[in-house]
């Protein structure tokens, strides 16, 4: 199962609409990094609105993707994290401290734009 990655000008848009498992999320990590390399993107928005469950491994990989993208010069914003997901993550002690977050795709894009241009 591969997650589609859309290119929009300088950004990559990714909406995760399947329940993530270990295999999918690793494949996803690889795809995102390749795509950043290929397109020379400056920003990435990962939208988690339809994700209802995130375990510690998936959270770790998502955090890794953010760090790796940063190394490649692309800023990542996670958007649309559901309350239930946020509560589980906090309960597990995962705070994703250095990761930028936004309420939804729209605000995520605004945030990226502000940070990259301003």
């Amino acid at each position: 199962m591969r997650i589609p990655i859309l290119k929009l000008y300088d950004y990559l848009l990714i909406s995760i609409q399947v329940e993530l498992d270990d295999q999918t999320v690793l494949q996803f990590q690889e795809d995102v990094l390749n795509k950043i390399h290929q397109e020379g993107s400056r920003g990435v928005v990962i939208d988690l609105t339809s994700v209802e469950m995130v375990d510690s491994y998936i959270a770790k990989v998502l955090g890794d993707v953010v760090d790796m993208s940063k190394l490649m010069g692309a800023k990542v914003v996670l958007t649309g994290i559901q309350p239930s997901v946020a509560i589980t993550l906090i309960d597990m002690g995962i705070t994703l401290e250095d990761v930028a977050t936004a309420l939804d795709l729209e605000q995520g894009l605004e945030k990226l734009q502000r940070e990259l241009e301003g």
Binding site: T79, I81, A86
Partner: peptide, 12 residues
């Protein structure tokens, strides 16, 4: 603190 961190995760 937990509530504040959770709020940050949902993007506020």
């Amino acid at each position: 603190i937990q509530a504040a961190e959770a709020v940050r995760l949902v993007g506020a």
